[in-house]
Design a protein around this nucleic acid. Structure first.
Lengths: 346, 346
DNA sequence: GTTAGCACTCAGAGCTTTAGAGTGCTAACG
DNA sequence: CGTTAGCACTCTAAAGCTCTGAGTGCTAAC
């Protein structure tokens, strides 16, 4: 593959930019007029022909303008992924909203989702931070009735799980407090595997405690298996306005993808697992796990504390999305969430 | 207004039924053929003219079939709201899914939302159970760092809230356990108002405890103000397949309504507040709070324990929805959730 | 290497035509 | 008098048609 000339790079970027803006195939004459290029439309036509040849652009039909291909977008994005800061003003505004938010990981995540959907005018997708293998932070046991217990589990990364369980033995809140104290001493900071081994050599604490540990383990296994916490989504209505979703079949496929939480979680956890915190990645729909969302793309970053607890934040929209705005926005929000995870010390 | 004749009622019901099935204006000839009526299309035409006169039906244009008006739907639904059981088989199937579900209010609610969306092929909307004024069930305090605390609040109805707080005084987990014990003894079963008064005459427990109580109260106020817990929604993709949503502007309005959580919560809590648990109501879009979702309707029921903690479960779809299936489904699921709320004893 | 000029292409907007489903009315029927 | 067959009339939606204009590739001149 031959290198692109400087001028070709410029023209390719401008085509992408213009297409993102208008959603219409971009013609040579128009491009020259819009951007006051100091060469003529015929020259642009020649370069466009070359870019089309090299698969960066394509033509919907012979006598139409050019549309970027996936390869074209990739080129465009690769120039964007490193640099670009969000304008000071926007950063201030976002930070302000976080400073006013109610405390708690859940609230922050929802706020981030809401801000991102708003800024990007597309669908935001945010998953709660979770370590590869969950560790227990705190166990709380609450007596509901004589033989019924509510177990609340605080996990690393600020995630919570609640389970009801029934025990055969009557247990009082005082007894539960004791059990909880013991378990907290033993299990704090441990993961499912460690707890499984530890619990084998435990002094007998009665059948209730056994039942509690069993439930605890099954909850941890569940969480480990999911690998990604709750996924929040917002801004679906925004993206319906885009022309690529005016075909409702297209829109349905995308929404089904979003509502298939396991699929989405799988994708988020798998594809970004090795990714360093802070780095923004762009995925293009069409093949692999994203085959259902052809001509969409996904800008994601991992946030949190590397090796401790990480989640993902991203924006899903038509492939023709405003990368130059969305990439810095995602990066900035990932940074904020990372700070919050670190500060909350979970 | 004159009463409808028996035959008119039959015809009206059939028109609604047929229109729900096909989404096309219903013509006289077709109706006779489909349902083997023992009178002719001319007779049906006459009756239809009368029903149109009386505003139960309308014509998109002079030479088209009839479409039910909102009044027509109301009539149809009024005959359905009381009776009709879900088929034994479906009930078994649903019960089975619940029996296999993981424990915990959150999980049940999501399961209910998922089943309902699936059964109705429309959008399900389920809100968590919450009393008019929340009462505290259990307070758990977890030391994160020296001066940072995670407060977990279990509220009546099984809802949980988490907050982070910073205190100026160094506090250990042991101290926190003591404070939590005291607060639990004092505040269990109390609502925000009672706690506010109680906390005035409290023995001094140090500045950390004060800060904790302040956060506790503000969380309770927040929750009271919202009046409805988290709202889960599922099945958006299903409804996009309906012809009334092929116009993306229409679809957007509906989705915006759904994503405006405060609006939705407000509607759910306000309009069904007085409603007895178990009764199914049908709301038609177009005016009042539902003005944004013209030609949609909402079948809802309240579930939970009257006066203790109630939530809502419902299905939102095109006004042309399968009421005869959806109404019993909503009623049945509301029943199951009510049982679960009762059993979990919160 | 660049550019003006030109013949050619083709999607989409706008218009016309047509088919058929549905109506209301009238007159005949039991 | 309610019911029904028959008929002229209405009106949408689909199909076919034309025409415009943006865009192209190529050639020849600069």
């Amino acid at each position: 593959m031959i290198e692109l000339s400087e001028r070709q790079k410029v023209i390719l970027s401008l085509v992408v930019h213009e297409y993102v803006r208008t959603a219409n195939p971009v013609g040579s004459k128009n491009l020259v007029r819009q951007y006051h290029l100091d060469y003529s439309s015929a020259t642009v036509r020649n370069e466009m022909a070359a870019l089309t040849e090299a698969q960066y652009l394509s033509q919907p039909h012979t006598s139409a303008g050019r549309v970027p291909t996936e390869k074209g977008y990739r080129f465009f994005v690769s120039g964007l992924i490193q640099m670009r800061e969000l304008p000071e003003e926007t950063r201030r505004m976002i930070e302000h909203q976080f400073s006013q938010a109610q405390q708690g990981m859940d609230g922050w995540i929802k706020l981030a989702a809401s801000i991102l959907a708003d800024q990007a005018n597309a669908i935001s997708v945010v998953s709660a931070p979770l370590p590869n293998r969950t560790t227990v932070k705190y166990i709380s046991l609450i007596s509901i009735t004589n033989k019924q217990i509510l177990m609340i589990l605080v996990l690393a990364g600020g995630q919570m799980q609640q389970r009801f369980l029934f025990v055969s033995e009557v247990t009082t809140q005082t007894q539960l407090n004791e059990i909880a104290d013991t378990l907290n001493r033993l299990f704090e900071g441990r993961n499912s595997e460690e707890i499984r081994i530890l619990s084998r050599h435990l002094p007998d604490m009665g059948s209730a405690a056994e039942e509690i540990i069993r439930t605890l383990l099954s909850t941890l296994y569940d969480t480990d298996a999911r690998q990604t916490g709750e996924v929040y989504t917002e801004g679906i209505n925004k993206v319906l306005a885009e022309p690529e979703f005016s075909d409702s079949e297209e829109a349905r496929r995308t929404l089904r993808f979003l509502e298939e939480k396991p699929l989405l979680q799988d994708f988020l956890s798998r594809t970004t697992r090795e990714q360093k915190v802070g780095g923004v990645q762009v995925f293009f729909g069409g093949d692999g796990l994203l085959k259902d969302i052809a001509n969409c793309s996904l800008v994601v970053a991992r946030y949190g504390m590397q090796g401790i607890a990480t989640g993902t934040i991203g924006v899903l929209g038509p492939m023709r999305m405003a990368y130059s705005k969305n990439i810095p926005t995602v990066r900035f929000l990932a940074g904020i969430l990372s700070d919050l995870v670190a500060d909350s010390g979970l």
